[in-house]
């Protein structure tokens, strides 16, 4: 029996409200606003209150998918990572680094965006990195 509250930041807009994810026996069971949060001051909007609502959705991707004969089929992580690495390597070798483009994410963390652009610039060798900041 374990019940705890994990403080995190809302993923649904640039306001940056704070809330707790209520975790009971390793499962998220709800959201509680953070009354001491400097931005949201104990309030949330309807999206924040329901920010846990998609986490266990049955549509969650459950395995890497690889397109084979025009259809996406399940594959292992090893296969998928291998394929990505190989194909990016091949395309870079054949067409040059600028034939590869990367879309970073306004929904991902700072650390992930940092690594992604580092990957693009240092590993692929291109500045073709953007995200939907304008959209």
């Amino acid at each position: 029996m374990e019940y705890k509250n994990v403080l995190t930041t809302c993923p649904f807009c640039g306001t940056g409200c704070g809330f707790f994810l209520q975790v009971l026996d390793g499962k998220i069971v709800g959201v509680l606003p953070d009354k001491k949060h400097p931005v949201s001051q104990g309030s949330l909007c309807v999206k924040g209150w329901n920010a846990h609502g998609f986490i266990y959705h049955e549509d969650r991707l459950k395995s890497p998918l690889i397109r084979r004969n025009g259809k996406l089929v399940e594959a292992s992580w090893d296969e998928a990572i291998e394929l990505v690495a190989t194909r990016l390597g091949e395309i870079k070798a054949k067409h040059g680094p600028d034939s590869i483009a990367l879309l970073a994410s306004a929904k991902a963390t700072n650390e992930e965006n940092y690594l992604f652009q580092k990957f693009g610039r240092a590993v692929i060798g291109t500045n073709n990195i953007d995200h939907c900041a304008r959209l």
Partner: peptide
């Protein structure tokens, strides 16, 4: 978006 600021800050 929640981290559009950060994605820009991080060189995305």
């Amino acid at each position: 978006q929640n981290n559009v600021q950060g994605a820009c800050d991080m060189g995305g």
